[in-house]
Amino acid sequence: MRILMVEDEHALAETVRRGLKNEGFVVDVAHDGVGGLSAALENPYDAILLDLMLPRMNGYDVLKELRRRKVWTPVLMLTAKDGEYDQTDAFDLGADDYLTKPFSFLVLVARIRALIRRGAPARPVVLSVGTLSLNPVNRSVRRGETPISLTAREYGLLQFLMRRHDQIVSKSEILQNVWDPAFEGADNVVEVYIGYLRRKIDVPFGVHTLTTVRGMGYLLSSGPNLGHRDVVTRED
Rank of each mutant, 00 (worst) to 15 (best):
L99K: 02
R113S: 08
A110H: 13
A80T: 08
V107C: 04
L78D: 06
A110V: 00
F103H: 07
F105I: 01
G83M: 04
D92T: 13
R111P: 00
L93R: 07
A110L: 04
T79F: 10
R113H: 10
F105W: 02
L108I: 01
K101G: 06
A95C: 08
Y85A: 13
P102A: 02
P102H: 02
D96A: 12
F105E: 06
D92M: 06
K81L: 14
L108F: 12
F91Q: 03
V109A: 14
D92N: 15
D97Y: 11
D96L: 04
L108P: 03
L99T: 02
A90I: 02
F91S: 02
L106N: 06
G94H: 09
T88L: 07
D97Q: 05
D86L: 12
A80C: 05
R113L: 05
T88I: 00
L78F: 11
L93V: 07
A110G: 12
T100H: 00
T88F: 15
S104V: 01
D86M: 10
D96P: 00
I112C: 09
L106D: 12
K81Y: 09
Y85D: 03
D86T: 01
G94Y: 07
K101D: 10
F105H: 09
R111Y: 10
S104N: 11
F91Y: 15
G94Q: 03
T88N: 15
T100I: 14
K101E: 10
T88H: 15
S104E: 09
A95M: 10
A80L: 02
A80Y: 05
A80S: 14
D86R: 14
A90Q: 09
Y98D: 07
T79S: 15
L99N: 03
G94D: 11
D97H: 11
T79V: 15
L99Y: 08
F103S: 10
V109R: 12
L108E: 08
A80G: 15
D89L: 11
F91E: 01
F91K: 12
T79L: 09
R113I: 03
K81W: 04
T88Q: 13
R111H: 13
T79I: 07
R113G: 05
T100E: 11
T88P: 11
Q87P: 14
D97M: 05
T100M: 11
A90S: 15
F91L: 15
L108G: 07
I112P: 00
R111E: 09
A110W: 01
L93Q: 13
A90F: 08
Q87T: 01
